[in-house]
Design a protein around this nucleic acid. Structure first.
Lengths: 212, 212
DNA sequence: CCCATGTCTTGACGGTTGTCAAGAATTTTC
DNA sequence: GAAAATTCTTGACAACCGTCAAGACATGGG
């Protein structure tokens, strides 16, 4: 009856206990392999065997650290979120004028568009999956508000530096920027070499118009 | 050797020829069943057997009318496009003032958000799939410019009626509206009952700001 | 050194998928 | 109405999926 399935946290049996950090380290390691695979193949074509093959382990180990596929994906998504939330915090803290903040924001957007394209398309993939599969919704919606807050910190600081109020609320502005970014991502992935430049131009034009 | 696979158009064998309209009718019939299934389950979870089960035929007939799964999906997507392109043409032709056009556009957006949600999430699903699978890109990009043109007709007419120019180009405006609509769709599908009202309010606020 | 515990590999299971062939059923043609 | 062509059903195939159990391997404490 010694089941090897991971159900809730590190195995605690016979009085001894796996060091939690070692356990979490493996989970994170697998999550990184999973994210790489998901970013390359998308959710629909990613299997647990493919994920394991992109790691240094065999396919059985996935079930040792995660109860099922959904728990793995969820863990990946949470890990991914923690990585990208602080993406713009540096430039928000350091910029001293509205113009500087705006140009640095535009540059950073283009940079992440080109260097982290697989992660971005994965995010859009998972967000769309949540439109079909109820299981994904809690995590996706949580990440979405986290990203919204991240964008909110940028534009609120931008308005503050400009000394003018925003004419729209943050959720609306997030939706606008998200639409522009998603279009740029699609363009970038389909071979449009000007996608990055266009994204920058659009954001640099859009944000000043959002000031009252 | 009498293969039953559909490879290129209606079977032409032995001098006789299937009436093309009958053949196309069946293909369209299957495409409609496929669209219903895809809109309900999403691309990742839709199988050919499931599609056939949602039609009045058995699962083998799919391969008789379509060479493979990809050709079926492509046919669906083309059929879908033809349906939704003219969605706003009526209100563009009939509206006599900018205000009327704007309110009717907002109403129509909310209506399609609620009554055609499965088709909309399918579109976002397929567009995201095209970020991963090269096969989908030609058709997706074609539909995307078609939708862009559709939105373009609305906002260009809106600017014309208002007697003022647009401060952005049509692709940018399409991206902005798309972001707002996608957010509303996600909200609507996750139980947000105010998603429609918020969508309308945002569009009614946004469009006037795009006039010079 | 031995044994208990934690970790990982291997191989298998039931189920599902896209595909396709063989033939039955239907329709069309003469 | 017979013959031929088209249309559809049935059943099978190889491959793949998530899951899981049995056991090999590694590790550390006694």
């Amino acid at each position: 009856m010694s089941s090897t399935a991971a159900v809730d946290g590190p195995p605690v049996r016979g009085g001894r206990r796996t060091p939690a950090d070692k356990y979490d380290e493996r989970r994170t390691q697998l999550a990184i392999s999973a994210l790489a695979t998901l970013g390359e193949l998308g959710y629909a074509r990613t299997s647990l065997r493919e994920i394991a093959q992109n790691s240094e382990f065999s396919h059985g180990v996935v079930h040792y650290y995660f109860a099922d596929k959904f728990e793995l994906i969820t863990h990946c998504v949470r890990y991914y979120k923690a990585q990208c939330v602080t993406r713009y915090d540096g430039l928000v803290a350091e910029s001293t004028t509205a113009e500087e903040l705006l140009t640095r924001f535009g540059d950073k957007l283009v940079e992440t568009l080109t260097t982290e394209a697989p992660m971005h398309r994965l995010w859009y993939d998972l967000r769309t999956q949540s439109m079909f599969e109820e299981q994904f919704r809690p995590d996706v919606l949580m990440i979405d508000v986290t990203l919204e807050d991240m964008i909110g910190r940028v534009v609120l600081r931008y308005a503050e530096l400009a000394g003018r109020p925003l004419v729209m609320d943050v959720p609306t502005i997030y939706a606008l920027l998200d639409g522009v970014f998603e279009k740029a991502l699609l363009g970038h992935l389909t071979g449009d070499e000007d996608a990055g430049a266009r994204l920058r131009a659009r954001v640099l034009d859009l944000l000043p118009r959002l000031l009252g």
